[in-house]
Structure formats: structure tokens, C-alpha cells
Design a binder for these strands. Structure first.
Lengths: 204, 204
DNA sequence: GAAAATCTACCTGCTAGATGGTAGCCATAA
DNA sequence: TTATGGCTACCATCTAGCAGGTAGATTTTC
């Protein structure tokens, strides 16, 4: 028995991330999942309900990712790099970040949604701040680095790179930006620019 | 005599930058400018034509800005910072970057538009690469900095910060990211984080 | 310099199709 | 037997865009 609700979420996410929130319709989604438009309302009463569910699911997947990075990587730079690699998947699939896509349409977004998105970013910034503060404490980061401000910058850089490189150089451009970002976090004179592993890690 | 075409461009830009391309309609625009919907077609035959005109005008304004930065600032970091301050205006007005907004909806964008947007970003990256290469040559930047990669990163960071901070901390967050970004370009141990001047410079 | 033709900027009124959403019916599976 | 999940058939509203008209300014022609 197929899980229509899950299929709806999956396809809706692809559509929204590719063409924006108001750029996708129940009609598109119905076609993608191959059920009638009206049937979608059975699973998600309104379009806003669907969007909220989309963000919650996306957020939950990132929660898992953040946790797994902490347990797999112990070095601060490696953690940031691993975090960045989750964005890479988006570039490779030609999809923007769900929350960035929604944030663009802020002015017309329902309040619930706007709050959820803000929380999404706040959480990531807080997580990075923690990671960076730890890195400062153990000396693996450039001395004098401000964890709070740098955390904001990391999220901004990655979100921007995802937006940009999806349009321009593709994953090569994104990898270059991620490497440059990571380099700027390291203590000076370590010298060697770390070549980013080319393997794809996971999908978010 | 009022310049309706200019008014249309101005209002359309605000609408698009605030709610996305497919999130704004000729109906909205007609209301904002207070003419009938059909009359807009007299000035811009199709919505795509309007979008193209919007991007061209936006691009031209940035061209001017890039030129004026070069003549006003001679230090590389100061140039990047001045460049970043043009984005600040967007945060303060609660408006995203026009080209970023359009880039989000890539999958549904007419080809002309997609090309124009790509060119917009390419131009900025090339300009920054030039600025950074000059800065490397005269020693005002961190040694070992890769101008090409860093140029991409700068645009990514600023675009991301604009997207993010419009939703979160507002101009304070953006200023913090811009300062952190500029700091990461400077040679090490210069020490003092430069407080960003709080005045608003110009609008793009 | 007056008449004729053209152009500009807008209008009303329409169209075909898409939009999100509702009502109610029917099959299947628990 | 009763949810569940899907369907058909709607609806009102909005979408971009078109046809055709009008008032006034500008240009062309005699």
C-alpha cells in the first residue's frame, strides 16, 4: 500500500524548492503524484498546512543531520564542512533550500510559516555558534574568531552559495565557496587549502 | 506629467523583491500605481518583458555603484565593505535582492531572464575578483587568499545575509556578517574588528 | 495655418485557463 | 460497519493577456 501523504510531501518539496512557494500549485502536485487535485485536500486541508508540514519535515531531517555531524566529527572545521556538504546535495539536485525559498516570499507568507522558518535558521545559527565556540576553546579555529557573528556568516554564506551556484557553476562553484569559507576559519599559516572530498555524503 | 512607466518599474520592483516573481501580479501592480490592469500591457507587453526591464534597470544601477566604489575607495577591504553596504539598503527596506528573488524561481523562469540573472552575478563576481586581485597585489589582503574563489564567497555571503537577516535580526545581523566577512579578508593580527559605520550610504 | 493622420496613454470589457477550496459520492480495507 | 482515501463535479476568484475604443497630443501634408 502506498503512502500517499509521504509522496505528496516529497513531491511538493521538490516543486517548492525548484519554483518557489507561490510558483507551485495543487494542480502541479496532483499531476506529480498522479491523484486528483481535490484529493490532496484530504491530506492537507490548505496549502498553508502543506507548507507547514513541509518545513517541519525538512527541519526534522536537519535535526538528525546536526546530531550525526556532532557524533561523527570532532574537529570544528570538519563539522562546519560536513554541515556545508548537506547543502551541496541541493546544488547537485538543482534545488534551493526549502526555508530560503519560503523566506524570499516573506511578505505574503502566513505568520505560522514565517515563525517556523525563522526558528529553523535560529536553530542552525545556535548550533554553529556552539560548534565554533568549542573550536575556539580547543584552539582548532583562528584565534579571535567571534563564534556568534561567524555562525551567522556561515549560514549566510552557505545559503547564498546554494542560491548562486545552482544558477552558475553548479557544484564546482559551491565546493570552492565551501572550501574558502572553511579556510577562513582555520588558524593562519596552516597553509594547505584542503581539497574537498568529492563524494556525496547524504541528502537533506 | 507623471512618468507612468518609471512608476510601474519602481512599484513592480518593490512587489517582486518583497513577494517573489510569481507572487506578484499585474493586478497588484495596477492597484499600486493606480491605473487599470490592462494599461500595464501598454508599457510592458508581457509579464516577462516587465521582469526583463526590471533586471536591466537593477543591473544598470549596480553598474553605477560598482564604478563609484572604485573611484571613491582605493583599499580592497573598503571596496568590499562599500559593496556590501549596498545590500544593507535592502535589509533596511525589508526587500530581497531582485536577482536572488528571481533565481529562486529558476525552474519556471523564461530563458532570457535566467541568462540576464546569471550575467548579473557573473559580472559582480568578476568585479570582486578584480578588486581582490588588486588587494592581493598591494598587500592589503590576507596572503594566500584566492581572488576567484573569494569573490564567489563574498557574493554568496552577502546574498545569503540579505536573505537571512531580512527575516531575523534585521540590519544588525547583516552588519555583523559584513564585518565578519571583511575581517576574514584582512591580513591576520591587525587585530581590531572594524566597527561598521552606521550611516546609510545609498540605495540600490 | 488648418486639416488629416498618427501616436500615446489610458480606458472598459472581455476571455480562457489556473487557482485554492468545497460537497458529496464510492470503493476498499480494518 | 466504519474509517480511509480516493473520486467527479463543482465554485468563486484570480491570472495574464486581448480587442477595441476614446481623448488628447504630435506630426505630417497641402
Amino acid at each position: 500500500m502506498r503512502d500517499t501523504r509521504a509522496e505528496l510531501l516529497a513531491q511538493a518539496e521538490v516543486l517548492v524548492r525548484g519554483r518557489g512557494y507561490s510558483g507551485f500549485s495543487y494542480g502541479d502536485l496532483a499531476e506529480a503524484v498522479n491523484i486528483r487535485k481535490a484529493s490532496i485536500h484530504h491530506h492537507f486541508r490548505t496549502k498553508t498546512d502543506l507548507a507547514v508540514a513541509l518545513v517541519r519535515a525538512y527541519d526534522a531531517r536537519y535535526d538528525e543531520a546536526l546530531g550525526s555531524i556532532l557524533s561523527l566529527q570532532s574537529d570544528a572545521v570538519a563539522r562546519v564542512e560536513a554541515y556545508g556538504r548537506y547543502y551541496l546535495a541541493g546544488v547537485e539536485d538543482g534545488l534551493g533550500c526549502l526555508c530560503a525559498v519560503l523566506a524570499i516570499e516573506m511578505d505574503t507568507l502566513p505568520d505560522v510559516l514565517r515563525a517556523d522558518i525563522a526558528q529553523f535558521f535560529d536553530k542552525h545559527i545556535a548550533w554553529l555558534e556552539r560548534v565554533l565556540a568549542d573550536g575556539c576553546a580547543d584552539g582548532s579555529l583562528r584565534p579571535g574568531l567571534d563564534p556568534a557573528a561567524t555562525a551567522r556568516m556561515v549560514v549566510a554564506t552557505l545559503e547564498g552559495a546554494l542560491l548562486l551556484e545552482r544558477l552558475l557553476a553548479g557544484s564546482a562553484g559551491f565546493r570552492s565557496t565551501l572550501a574558502t569559507l572553511c579556510d577562513s576559519l582555520k588558524p593562519p599559516r596552516t597553509g594547505s587549502r584542503n581539497a574537498l572530498s568529492s563524494g556525496r555524503d547524504d541528502t537533506i
